[in-house]
């Protein structure tokens, strides 16, 4: 038994490395980053724009890989995440770590060289924010983890914007805040219908530690902050009427669904339909809101509005 025979281990499939970057989350990152880039005043060469978006996406992928390196034990204990490459044993933990660091470092350096060091610095902060501040520090400690963690997902449009303009103004900061306040209702809706899983691995998700009633009230509270906030770009003249109308209509839909979730209480064997609906709508909401932002800018450029 003590003979040192290092078995030749099957190297991890490249597809598992790809899975490590959480491609599905990345679509939202790419989309919001691209919208920030397209909505920003000014021009960027398409090649450089592509490079900027690629760096944002690869940076997010690197942060996701680091997250899964750190949380492999937790992931193994949850049904939703147990099949990820590291907890499922298809990849060594160190591979995920090295891959994550390589993607993170590479994306920041390329962003700096190709686009500018302000965009690169914000990208670095966003990776650090997700991989350390959120994953390592806050997630296991506070039930408000999602609120602060939402900051990580809020960076892409800010980075996309700064890649074009080279400096920070109030508009990209408002875009940042919109995603920031969007995250809690989005994620807690999910946490309401998968709460048993989080309880099992001891992550203090709000529904687990504070109960359902508080979670529902908080979902409603953050929605009430989000909807007026989404109108700020229009109210302050940063966008035209196209965005204003879209934000108002989309916000009303969000509010209606959040009200249903916020004012009810689940019963035994509840199908949690309103929660699932709110979760699905929240994804659609963000896509549509940012699409409206881009549409608004092009409408303005071509004099349609």
């Amino acid at each position: 038994m003590d003979l040192v025979t290092t078995p030749l281990r099957m190297p991890a499939d490249w597809r598992d490395f790809f899975a490590l970057t959480k491609p599905r989350v990345m679509t939202l990152v790419i989309f919001t980053g691209l919208c920030g880039l397209l909505a920003a005043p000014g021009e960027i060469h398409p090649v450089l724009g592509f490079a900027a978006i690629l760096c944002i996406a690869v940076g997010a992928g690197g942060a996701a890989a680091l997250n899964q390196w750190w949380e492999a034990d937790l992931d193994a204990g949850m049904k939703r995440t147990a099949k990820r490459p590291v907890p499922a044993g298809r990849m060594e933990r160190e591979s995920a770590r090295d891959f994550g660091f390589a993607l993170s470092g590479g994306s920041v350096v390329v962003m700096g060289l190709a686009i500018g060091w302000l965009a690169a610095a914000i990208l670095a902060v966003s990776i650090f924010y997700y991989a350390w501040v959120y994953t390592v520090w806050l997630k296991p400690r506070t039930p408000q983890n999602i609120v602060i963690g939402g900051g990580a997902g809020a960076f892409p449009p800010l980075i996309g914007w700064v890649a074009v303009t080279g400096h920070i103004t109030w508009m990209p900061v408002v875009l940042f805040l919109i995603i920031f306040f969007w995250t809690p209702p989005h994620f807690w809706a999910l946490a309401l219908f998968v709460q048993t899983d989080y309880a099992k691995v001891g992550i203090p998700m709000l529904p687990v530690v504070a109960g359902e009633r508080v979670t529902r009230r908080q979902i409603l509270l953050y929605t009430l902050l989000l909807v007026p906030l989404s109108l700020v770009p229009w109210a302050l003249g940063g966008t035209g009427l196209v965005f204003g109308v879209a934000a108002a209509l989309l916000g009303l839909g969000f509010l209606a669904l959040a009200l249903r979730v916020g004012l009810r209480q689940s019963v035994p064997n509840d199908t949690m339909k309103p929660e699932k609906r709110l979760f699905a709508y929240s994804v659609l909401y963000l896509f549509a809101l940012f699409a409206a932002l881009v549409l608004d800018r092009f409408a303005g450029l071509h004099g349609w509005a």
Binding site: P7, L8, M10, P11, D13, W14
Partner: peptide
């Protein structure tokens, strides 16, 4: 049970990784 080592699968995996890289 010492996992039956499949050299062919191993090489194929390596090849796929190399190609992706």
């Amino acid at each position: 049970d010492p996992e039956q080592f499949d050299l062919k699968a191993f090489r194929n995996r390596q090849k796929a990784r190399n190609r992706a890289l």
